[in-house]
């Protein structure tokens, strides 16, 4: 992991945000104010900031679900503005929503996980195979025919992650992924995420969770990202080994 970070400093960033400003229509106060960020290949970044500081809004802007009032977003070396450009970006960046009920809209688990691959033009048989593989990879064997609305909160979160991973993204944006999970499910999620060979940004209020998964951390103040010195090291109860060096 450490090697990746040093290499990445030399390459162009995967995501470069320059002077991004965003105001919700009908509001006067900008949620994001001239925000800047460089995010490199292989980086694992945590964002921890109070509710309402604009974390989710930042992710929505990165995915093109909201349009900035000013500033630029460059992804994979090119500026992205139009819906068409964002459509291509969405094939390479996956986002996990804060509420799993928004993410899982198909009646059954297999259909939901296969939804992305089918949209990417995969044949049904191939999409099924990808969906099964992704579920197995997350320890969700036998979940294929489960009905999504009957899953527990933790299961919904893991299946949501599967729906995103099935699209084989290069970058993950995770919005409060550990929210409402019990310790055991959280440990499982940490294991799966740290095993992935992906760059990601995690929004979380959970110190332990970010301590395990993020190499660098930001907070948000006045609509801008500020690096946090170093995570306060809370004692943590997981037997899981840290990736810190």
């Amino acid at each position: 992991m450490a090697a990746l970070t040093t290499d990445s400093a030399k390459t162009d960033p995967l995501i470069r945000i320059t002077d991004l400003t965003f105001i919700y229509p009908g509001s006067v106060k900008p949620v994001l104010r001239q925000l800047n960020l460089d995010f490199h290949q292989g980086e694992r970044v945590g964002i921890m900031a109070p509710n309402g500081s604009g974390k989710t809004t930042l992710f929505y802007l990165l995915m093109g679900l909201l349009k900035p009032d000013s500033g630029t977003i460059e992804i994979f070396g090119k500026p992205v503005r139009s819906e068409k450009e964002f459509e291509n970006i969405r094939k390479r960046i996956g986002m996990l929503f804060q509420d799993s009920d928004d993410q899982l809209f198909s009646p059954t688990v297999l259909e939901d996980v296969a939804f992305g691959p089918l949209n990417l033009g995969k044949k049904p048989a191939e999409a099924k195979l990808i969906a099964r593989d992704t579920l197995n990879q997350l320890g969700l064997e036998g979940f294929e025919n489960r009905v999504t609305h009957k899953l527990s909160g933790g299961e919904k979160r893991l299946v949501s992650l599967a729906t995103v991973l099935a699209m084989e993204p290069e970058v993950l944006l995770l919005d409060e992924p550990s929210n409402g999970l019990d310790e055991e499910t959280k440990t499982r999620l940490i294991t799966h995420l740290s095993d992935l060979d992906l760059s990601y940004m995690i929004i979380s209020h959970d110190h332990d969770f970010l301590y395990e998964l993020a190499q660098s951390n930001y907070t948000m103040k006045n609509g801008q990202l500020e690096p946090m010195e170093r995570m306060h090291i809370h004692y943590h109860s997981h037997p899981h080994t840290s990736h810190r060096h």
Binding site: E87, R90, F115, G116, T163
Partner: peptide, 12 residues
């Protein structure tokens, strides 16, 4: 939000 989640996964 569901519509957004669907678009993020390539729904057209």
């Amino acid at each position: 939000r569901v519509n957004q989640a669907m678009r993020l996964r390539g729904f057209n």
